[in-house]
Design a protein around this nucleic acid. Structure first.
Lengths: 225, 225
DNA sequence: TAATACGCATGATAATTGTCATGATTTATA
DNA sequence: TATAAATCATGACAATTATCATGCGTATTA
């Protein structure tokens, strides 16, 4: 089992604010897991008893709406922490986490994290910054949902995924999402998402290599209204 | 000038976690302000150098979207803190704050708050909880924006305002919002908001006493689809 | 291998929502 | 108070988006 003190991943999240001693202690009680694509990490309404540090892979955080559709609220990738909010608010999770590809995660028990939050002000300040940033993102998403068209939201989603989650050697988006997932991110019907993606293809903005999507014309996507 | 140590308002926000000494220190450097209805407290892109503790009144946090409409993201009332996020992330504000009625606020300089955040873990944990709660709210708003109809969102908004911001003696909503504000909350065109409110009146769900709105049929509003 | 399910795709149509125009009413201001 | 300027209201129409139906191709599995 690898050691937290030596793990590079922590540089990308608030765990970097922990002291070496704290990391050694956490290392002793953490557990490592492999999560298969499609597997549910935690469900809506579940009480979390720790946080996940994502060593590799990506997952979606979604919420089932009253009309039965799964709205994707956020995507969490390698380097980030998962489940901090629910831990802090001491409430059950309001979201479901589902792996989008094979993931490697470390699970750190609640008690350890809470102890550090209460003892190490640098750490809690880092978490605060993380959450402040998340809140800003949420605000932007709300404004986009409210004021932009499906076409515009989908175009921006493609660019966002390209910029944040990277590409394969052939420039296709490395995260493989179903059309249903795209609909879930954008907040539209699956058929509408499919239709818009087809339009984008016809307009030469994107290309589909098998199931993979490649962005051809960035400027064009940005211009979509 | 009133003293923070004796102020009841702090019971309602994270300042309650501060020690008496810390409160005395803050009290010495805070400033009190009256803000008139419609006045802008801070603008998008402005660097905040402190937080506001709202002693009385209510304000809206909004963001101008690309199509020129003001999307209301959140409303902040008496008892709550305003501006914590921007302070923590050390970025300019992504939102504009505008008073919806006459407000009484105390302004606490950035340096004081940051110092306490870094020294008093109880305080920073309270702020963390606040933000975790805000994030949960944001998630819900995103799902509602994406999956519910304008009618449904407006009905829920009316109920939300009734439950969270209270009513006048005659049961009308105590917060007086323009139809444009309602449109800004729901994320729709002003005309659409007006139309839906007119429908609600015709359907006997609400009543308009002058500019004030009174909810007549709660169950009916909840049933709106 | 055959059968079945699932994801992708597209058409037809209905429902929702936005936009533009116009007028009434209220509120602010000279 | 008279006038101007917002705000509220409604109609007509256009644009966007959802829903239902159907078919096709590819995985999955009995």
């Amino acid at each position: 089992m690898s050691k937290c003190e030596q793990c590079i991943i922590k540089q990308f999240n608030s765990l970097k604010a922990l002291t070496k001693d704290e990391l050694v202690r956490i290392s002793a009680c953490k557990t490592s897991h492999t999560i298969k694509k499609g597997e549910v990490i935690f469900e809506e309404g579940e009480m979390l008893n720790g946080v996940y540090c994502i060593k590799d892979g990506i997952c979606k955080l979604s919420k089932l709406s009253e009309n039965g559709k799964d709205q994707i609220v956020k995507m969490v990738v390698k380097g980030q922490l998962l489940g901090q909010r629910s831990l802090i608010s001491e409430e059950t999770s309001n979201l479901q986490a589902t792996a989008l590809n094979e993931m490697e995660v470390c699970f750190i028990p609640k008690s350890e994290i809470i102890a550090d939050l209460q003892k190490n002000p640098k750490f809690s300040f880092e978490v605060l910054k993380d959450m402040a940033h998340d809140l800003r993102d949420s605000d932007d998403i709300i404004v986009n949902m409210a004021q932009k068209s499906v076409r515009q939201r989908l175009a921006e989603t493609l660019i966002y995924i390209h910029e944040n989650f990277g590409t394969n050697p052939d420039d296709t988006l490395s995260v493989l999402l179903s059309r249903e997932d795209y609909a879930g991110i954008v907040g539209t019907a699956t058929e509408s998402a499919i239709r818009v993606l087809s339009q984008f293809k016809k307009e030469g903005l994107i290309e589909a290599v098998g199931k993979y999507i490649k962005i051809i014309d960035f400027a064009g996507l940005e211009r979509v209204e």
